[in-house]
Design a protein around this nucleic acid. Sequence first.
DNA 1: GGAATATTGCAACTGATTCTCAATACAGGG
DNA 2: CCCTGTATTGAGAATCAGTTGCAATATTCC
Lengths: 152, 152
Amino acid sequence: MQDHEHKFAEYLAQKGLKLTAPRKYILLEAFKLHEHFNAEELYEKVKRVTPEVSLATVYRTLPLLMEAGLVQSALRSSGRDRYEHIYGHPKHIHWLCRSCGAIMETDLQPINETIAAQAKTIRFEAQDIELNIKGLCWKCTANDNENQPDES
Amino acid sequence: MQDHEHKFAEYLAQKGLKLTAPRKYILLEAFKLHEHFNAEELYEKVKRVTPEVSLATVYRTLPLLMEAGLVQSALRSSGRDRYEHIYGHPKHIHWLCRSCGAIMETDLQPINETIAAQAKTIRFEAQDIELNIKGLCWKCTANDNENQPDES
DNA sequence: GGAATATTGCAACTGATTCTCAATACAGGG
DNA sequence: CCCTGTATTGAGAATCAGTTGCAATATTCC
């Protein structure tokens, strides 16, 4: 059993919940997805393995995965909540281009210390850090400059 | 005319849009609200001043205020998009307590440099920085440690 | 003041997420 | 292994935030 499966099983047991086949498959597929995904996308993946699983169950399982610390919510996009699995992955900064919709990631490590210091000051126990930056990627900046001769 | 009114008027003119009464009131009320708000809450405020304004118009105006750089989206909460006015206000980090729902704010300044450096590296033009941290505030940390006899 | 055009309120609509409920699967004890 | 009490499920209905079409209205600029 993989590490994340074990952690999920543990979490469920501790909560008095059951480790069912649908939940196993949803966890598995979530960890196969190596980009961000929304509920529907995860559902499509799971359906390929076990077609009888319903979208409702995916929606019901996602919060469990989050509480178990296996998945975290990511940059919401086009009206849909998005997620990413995080167990064992370092956190990162998300850069969303408002023009082309591209999402880039960089290391969050450099600011962790600063955040930890502030957390200490206000006595906050940080569990989840989400740093999203919206703007223009270099490609779209280039395009903008061409079409917009004057900026002042 | 206040500074933010002026900036909004300027933005609209530049876009060939009209400065209407509903838009003025929505802007005004948004700047009176000194916490985060969602569309419905802003609508309620506006309605007290001009009852004939519709919720749809609030929804239609919010994106304009964001594009004008007067309002920015904040921590989404209970399925609703939330906003805060920002014109002239320094950006800040949001700390959301998962237990009691309290939202605290701290200065974003200390990490700005780091972000600017990364932005430069990936050649990204940052317009909007959103740093949200979820966890437990000091009150709830205390509660969790002391009285947690029957949570199962 | 008048024309051209943007905007509005209203209600109907959309699409994501949640809920209801009867049927089913799981965990633990026998 | 089978039984029992409970948690869970699938399917579809329901909900709810946010959007849109449209005819009436307001604004801008001349």
